[in-house]
Design a protein around this nucleic acid. Sequence first.
RNA 1: GGGGGAGUAGCUCAGUUGGUGAGAGCAGGCGUCUUAUACACGCCCGGUCGGUGGUUCGAGUCCACCCUCCCCUACCA
Length: 1115
Amino acid sequence: MFAAVPSKPDLVAEEHALLAFWRERRIFARLRAQNAGGPRWSFLDGPITANNPMGVHHAWGRTYKDVFQRYHAMLGEDQRWQNGFDCQGLWVEVNVERDLGFTSKRDIEDYGIAEFVSLCKQRVLTFAARQTEQSVRLGYWMDWDDPEELRRLRDLLAADPSASVTVEGPGGPVTDTVEMIVGRLGMPELGGSYYTFSNENNDLIWAFLAECHHRGWLYKGHDTMPWCARCGTGISQHEMTEGYQDREDPGLTVRFPLVDRPGEALLVWTTTPWTLTSNVAAAVGADLRYVKVRQDDKVLWLGKGTLKQALQGGFEVLEEVPGSALVGWRYRGPFDDLPAVRAAFARSGPDGGHYEHRVVLWDEVGEEEGTGIVHIAPGCGAEDFALGRQLGLPMIAPLDESGIFIEGFDALSGRDVRDVTDQILERLRHHGFFHRVEPYTHRYPHCWRCGTPLVFRLVDEWYISMGPVYDKPRSELTPAEVDASLRYQIMEVVDRIRWIPSFGYERELDWLLNMHDWMISKKRYWGLALPIYDCRACGTIDVIGGRDELRERAVEGWEVLEGHTPHRPYVDSVKVACPGCGAPVERVRDVGNPWLDAGIVPFSTMHYRTDPAYWSTWFPADFITESFPGQFRNWFYSLLAMSTVLRREPPFRTIFGYATLFGEDGRPMHKSWGNAIEFDEAAERMGVDVMRWMYANARPEDNILFGWHAADEARRELLVLWNVYSFFVTYARVAGWTPERPVPPLDERLAIDRWILSRLAGLAERVGDRLGDYDLDAAAREISQFIDALSTWYLRLNRKRFSRSSDPADRDAAFATLHAALVGLARVAAPILPFLSEAFYRNLVAAVDPTAPDSVHLTRWPSAELAGFRDPALEDSMAVFSRAVELIRSLRSQAGIKLRQPLGRAWVALTDAGLRYREEMLGRLADEINVKEIIPIASDSDLVERRVKPLLPKIGKRLGPAIPAVMTAAREGAAEFHPDGSVTLAGVTLAPDEVEILSTPRPGTAVAHDHGLVVVLDTNVTPELRVEGEARDLQRAVQELRREMGLTVDERIDLAIEEGPAAARIALLIPALAAETLADAVAVGPVPLDAAVGEIEVEGGSLRFGVRRRVGGPS
RNA sequence: GGGGGAGUAGCUCAGUUGGUGAGAGCAGGCGUCUUAUACACGCCCGGUCGGUGGUUCGAGUCCACCCUCCCCUACCA
């Protein structure tokens, strides 16, 4: 017997119960054991940053990950099931700094790098534990760590990282220091999620960098870089895009007095006043025209095309010259007396003499903004730097790494660059350089992590060369050219990958073609220690390829690192002998770009060095999936780059990307906007199956709008399914039906039973096909349509067959069919709705069949076993039938005759093919539309006529301009039919396969038609029919009253019907009424005072009736 | 600045190689059905398919230009 289920489920409570069930029965572990040794399917998880609780947007991606892994598990495929956590980098640092109230790198140094790094590790463990719990709650099946164990390790790490600790691994206990155990998390001996801070991960990146160095691709660049003064680090090209924001800066115009033209000045515009301190030149365009103008008492030079925007008020043009005429003019800068400027200019002039500000040519100068004369400060701007280097200009670098003016800038020294604008303006005014200032809004780069506006600083950073870009199509490149350029090698790898959606392919290639060299260094603390040894003595650069190599090469300080993970500060103490000059060399202090950490995982987590056989089994991954925005230049890029360098082959075969999650109002989720929903709140209020269902139905390439209303919509659909389930269980319990009852053979069941089973078989086939193709939303749509067919068609048409009064054999067939449909559906939906499907399966199968697997997730994909149910012709017939029902319902609605009112006759014209199972279908039709008789319409009936529908795609080309006439003839019915099936319209004869012949109604009474299906309804309500309608009204009212009284479906009643003409009219129908309403006694007479009373409208008045629960009476 | 995508009902979006009556869901209105009972189903309302011009027998669909929004990308002071 099935367990009773509530009609209104508590999905959240249900989910918690099932989580407990899975845990207690170790279902996931058993699934893995069951599939061990099966065909392999390799999923590689992109690491989630373990820095905060996970959000609903993570749940979107994790739904994809879980669905496809579960689907492949149902195919019996062996998988790795390894989740990943991204651990190192500025993300974590910034949060730890915030917790400690730090505002600068100085604070960290004072606090102690070792302690700071330890806090970063602890934070990662904290949120790895938290995200693990949340993922489990989502129903995401992975080889999870025990969150309690992670928190224990975190606390031990805080207390004493060198203490010895023992933890349980898959192969037995493992003992090591706390710090080293943490560094070994995710390794085979410990199992569980991988962590990018692991020793192995760091070690393999060292190997990768050494390989790059070996090929000559690693180099130190000296350049002016975007720089975050708060974080004290450069920002790479990969990180720039995310940080562009609109910002208002002073749009400042200044005058540079010309040395050799007294009284005249250059007019120059800038939005970064602080860079004027470092001005060394003014650039003009060779092809631009420049004018000398007089305005008030000033004589100014500026670009002719900029006059309108640069000058306010009247002016007089005195002279016009090409830009080249200005070249070489000397001018006085506003900060020439600063010691730093004097020092920089002292030996930079021609022949080592004194340099003076001068006008130079630059082909980038434009006239869209400013004055056509560009202020050049090579120490403060990337393009300025390039120009300065080309022309041999002096460089002035005014800022330290925190954005503070260094010594040599007088009053500015020691001041923060973000805070000196007023002071500079004041100085400019005082010395007569100031011309004008007005607010200027533009897109300006900000630090993507902390939001601070970036400045440009002259720094040394480390790069991996991407190789040349050739000025010709890829197809024309020679192998040698490809060999010389990493970017083209990566492109070749990209070619071999399936990108979903397909635009991802073009986008990745576009990025690769346009990207600059990869800046991999960060002047920070928590991260990969770059294994670069840059000899100050002789300039030789050396890269160490692993911890073992470092140990062998160490000449000093190894004992400091011994026993520690390869992080700062310990790793900094190790010195190696310079291969060039033998001097002891320190590691550069930089840490690595965190995308190195994530990009190496196809190697580090698949044991590239330690277990080559394992690696070659699982590499490349069959599948990865992440949110598209950003990843083309981040994870996807680093995966591709590292795999190309190490193996020159794809690290994954298929990549599936999805868009961005927004709040319900279409804006990014933001706490202060009130549209944010936290994962925990969503899980406990809407339930995770509802959430998963929303994600499953989303089109991955579109942004998703997530909110409570959308969740309600999704839930409604699942509740329909629940209602079918609840209906089934309720009536199976009443009837005592269980799956142990003999199942009627398929060919003895009704067509409608075979129809729903055919639909089920098709469903399993198509959903499997779609999931196998990573097309989740199409799979979900299939399931939706099946739920609709099951609920609004199969169940509604067959409801009576499940009730007590129906024929037992047919009832068994109905139960067996609906049971099979629900169980099949549960199995098909299991990857997407793991909880709901498990609830169904547990009650419908596991509870009653001890030989069945005890979890739906231990069953195999059902398409093969269901294939025998397929019957496409039957499905087509049912489609015709259902359309006929719809048409007649529409006619009733138009005639204002409710469905409860029986009618005498309806006519139906069937298509030529007719209906299979004609008798059953027509009988059902009569039932469904509540008419006594269905009369087929012959094709030559008075009720219909033949119409022609020319098939345009077939005739269009042939007929061309004749089409309008043909179509008009067809529309007007002016057709000549020929015996061979051809048709002549407007003088044109169309072959049988060029037309479709449809039946359409001749004008008449209640007639409806659609695609050749015609129905006609006799709307005459005879007195006899009216009485039947009244009886049925009464029956429905009694049922309604039963419900209001709270009676169960099998409780008996006494029924009293008020005496009168209405009662007399329906007298003959009372026995049937009694049977339907479970009335043991029906009295026509006064309604008892203690009865519940109802009333219906009847012809000539109303009819009262009363219902009493029958206590203990015979049934 | 360059490249890409998108503009279809009040909202979110479908509309296959151009085929002649433009669809769904939600919202709104009106009904219907029902011991699956605060569920479901149906009907209606509603669109100059961003604008203009062109190609064609025929354009939401192809082409050109323009407008708006989004994304990617960029060394513009």
